[in-house]
């Protein structure tokens, strides 16, 4: 599996990517595939402050629920309301239309530095699949 190099990754299978001053967050294709067809995504209210590893929502398939963990600390300034009517975007376009929250990081300089880069995440997933 080769994930985009312009994002960073958590071991909980969230991705985080800078878009201007904000960090956009979603889940990786690996997480989406493990879950199967996504049927519902529960996202927080805008304005919520999250710390790293705080649960900010859940993503559901028919028979499973997975918590979503914030990969960065900051304030949630937008959520992807398109997922309300089209949760399948998480499966079909995990890195783009299937994004979940937009976070204004507490500290932009260090926000994503502890996360895995694409190569390290790919290696991490390869290990899980082995």
């Amino acid at each position: 599996m080769n994930v985009p190099t312009d994002a960073r990754y958590s071991r909980e299978h969230e991705w985080a990517r800078f878009d201007g001053d904000d960090v956009v967050v979603g889940i990786t294709p690996y997480a989406a595939d493990e879950l199967g067809d996504v049927v519902y995504v529960e996202l927080p209210a805008e304005g919520l402050h999250v710390d790293v590893m705080d649960e900010f929502g859940t993503v559901e398939s028919v028979k499973a629920v997975s918590p979503l963990y914030a990969p960065v600390a900051g304030e949630v300034i937008a959520v992807n309301s398109a997922l309300d009517g089209a949760p399948e975007l998480v499966n079909s376009s995990p890195f783009h239309e299937g994004w979940m929250i937009r976070v204004r990081p507490d500290d932009a300089a260090t926000a994503i530095e502890d996360l895995l880069d694409a190569e390290a995440y790919d290696a991490f997933v390869d290990e899980l699949l082995a």
Partner: peptide
């Protein structure tokens, strides 16, 4: 909507 229920979501 079985994910609401105890056999899947358990303590939640």
């Amino acid at each position: 909507l079985q994910t609401r229920e105890q056999h899947i979501r358990r303590e939640r």
